[in-house]
């Protein structure tokens, strides 16, 4: 009962945040068109890139063109998720530490990690989410291996993927407590995440391991795409789930550790 009440309270807070940040953005209505155009450009560019990569008709790392479109769709989807939910929240953390306004945040009577992660929504980046989902549906409809159970499993794995991305992003942002001046360490992730627009098997030997175990990009796009295209391997499904749970836990621990060591901007 208490948990449920707490959950409802947090949900309400999140909705209020979302409402406020949405109405702030409606002020800039040109943004909507601008973002829509940007999303279409990005998706079009990705497809053009695939056309170039498949120019010789050979499969890429064992994936056909259409199967890879599923990966590209998921990549676009996750990029939209980052742009809409993670970027507008977590990338303010270093600025807050720098200016000392983090003090206010830590004094709010809600969980600080929750507060920092839900304050803003960038409505317009949801266009990427929609286009990414559209690409996945379009590509999957023409594929033979697609089945209902596989798609459902894929859906679960997408949720795990979002959780992984959130945890990594949150941990990177938390380093702001120590590296005030470095600012957006998350740009590092942004650069490496570009590898996620290809199936991880399209990469040569050791690079593939880097993008699976050191930077878990494979679990974000390749593994869910495997499930959707009907080639899920129990091993990677299990690994994705474990990695998601583990990273969630570690990021939480890391946050508490950071807050304990926070010295506040005294200047």
């Amino acid at each position: 009962m208490r948990l449920l009440r707490r959950l409802r309270r947090y949900l309400r807070v999140a909705l209020i945040f979302a409402g406020a940040s949405v109405s702030a953005q409606l002020e800039y209505r040109a943004n909507f068109l601008v973002n829509l155009f940007g999303s279409l450009l990005l998706a079009g560019g990705s497809l053009l890139g695939l056309t170039v990569l498949y120019g010789d008709g050979q499969p890429l790392g064992g994936w056909s063109y259409r199967e890879t479109v599923v990966v590209v769709g998921l990549f676009t989807f996750v990029q939209g998720y980052i742009g809409a939910f993670l970027y507008p929240n977590l990338n303010r953390m270093s600025e807050e530490v720098r200016q000392g306004t983090m003090d206010f945040t830590l004094l709010k009577p809600v969980d600080s990690q929750f507060y920092l992660s839900t304050r803003n929504v960038n409505l317009f980046r949801l266009t990427d989410v929609a286009i990414g989902a559209g690409l996945v549906v379009w590509a999957a409809r023409g594929l033979e291996g697609v089945s209902l159970p596989g798609t459902l499993l894929g859906g679960v794995l997408v949720i795990a993927a979002l959780w992984i991305v959130y945890s990594v992003w949150f941990m990177l942002s938390t380093t702001a407590f120590w590296f005030v001046k470095v600012g957006n360490v998350t740009e590092l992730f942004n650069g490496l995440f570009r590898a996620g627009q290809f199936p991880v098997t399209a990469l040569p030997g050791w690079v593939r391991y880097v993008f699976t175990f050191i930077v878990p990009v494979a679990f974000v796009t390749t593994v869910p795409a495997e499930a959707i295209t009907g080639r899920a391997r129990p091993g990677s499904v299990l690994a994705a789930t474990v990695v998601a749970l583990l990273l969630g836990l570690i990021s939480r621990r890391f946050w508490h550790f950071a807050v304990r060591n926070y010295t506040s901007a005294s200047s």
Binding site: L53, Q58, L60, G61, V182, G183, N184, V185, E187, L188, N190, G191, L192, R194, A195, F198, A202, L203, P204, V207
Partner: peptide
């Protein structure tokens, strides 16, 4: 950090070499 973030050509290098 910005330099490492702009590593797309290196990723593409890996993809094309594998191909």
């Amino acid at each position: 950090i910005w330099m490492l973030a702009g590593s797309v050509p290196l990723i593409m290098m890996a993809v094309w070499i594998a191909k």
